[in-house]
């Protein structure tokens, strides 16, 4: 039997049971990535010698290689680094490697988002902050970061959604996330199609959830994705006029 709708229901509970794995990868890597990304962005905005250059190189590497390759480079390469730090690799679980790999990956993307958002803020905002007697830290804290947060939120959302999708690659390392679990139960029951459709639905719902979560916290407006390109000032006149006269 090629397709049996009954299995859609029967396999779903088994697949959804691995939701915590997928979610933990997304949440841990997002938080870790944001912190590390902020540090890299700081190096690059303030043009700290050497670190600025290393940051750029790191970002270029992460953005220039497939995430699957990064996962394995970390998986096979991290033990050597951990050894040096005196940590027994046998104590480190597989999923911890995933946290490290996805966190490192997100950091690069987040650093670029943060950097672009802060660079886009007009220099006059700094001037204005300094002119009322703020120091650099206060200017960032009170004036620049609040504006940048709004500007970068849509891009962060896109990043989190793609992290959610990329988390499915942990399957390659035998992690039982949504993707891995659906593969497993699909093969076991011989109803792979139903299992994969379940997984698709879960991924769609999760992405929508991310989208509405961002909106709920007022970080994004409706359906703005490529924000940088979305600016079109409304003239005094009817902006739809050219569409009406057709």
């Amino acid at each position: 039997m090629f397709f049996d709708i009954k299995y859609l229901y029967e396999l779903f509970p088994q697949i959804i049971s691995s939701l915590p794995i997928t979610l933990s990868i997304v949440v841990v890597s997002t938080i870790g990535g944001l912190i590390l990304g902020l540090i890299i962005a700081y190096f690059r905005i303030e043009r700290i010698p050497l670190l600025n250059w290393l940051g750029a190189l790191y970002v270029s590497f992460v953005q220039g290689t497939p995430i699957i390759v990064q996962l394995f480079v970390v998986y096979y390469g991290a033990p050597a680094v951990l050894d040096l730090a005196g940590i027994n690799v046998a104590d480190v679980s597989k999923i911890s490697f995933m946290f490290i790999a996805y966190g490192l990956n997100s950091a690069a993307y987040f650093s670029e988002i943060i950097r672009a958002a802060i660079n886009d803020i007009p220099k006059t905002q700094f001037d204005a902050a300094y002119s009322v007697g703020m120091n650099k830290y206060q200017a960032y804290r009170k004036i620049i970061i609040p504006q940048a947060t709004k500007a970068m939120a849509p891009n962060v959302e896109v990043s989190v959604v793609s992290l959610l999708q990329n988390s499915s690659l942990a399957t390659y390392l035998g992690i039982m996330d949504i993707m891995g679990k659906s593969q497993l139960v699909g093969t076991n029951t011989g109803h792979q199609m139903e299992a994969y459709i379940d997984a698709m639905v879960i991924f769609m719902v999760l992405s929508l959830a991310v989208h509405y979560l961002f909106r709920y916290f007022g970080l994004t407006k409706r359906h703005i994705k490529f924000r940088l390109y979305n600016v079109r000032p409304l003239a005094e006149t009817n902006e739809l006029s050219f569409k009406k006269v057709k």
Partner: peptide, 12 residues
Amino acid sequence: SNSIPLLLTLTV
């Protein structure tokens, strides 16, 4: 369709 991982699309 943007929210489905590429690996899943390929497999399906």
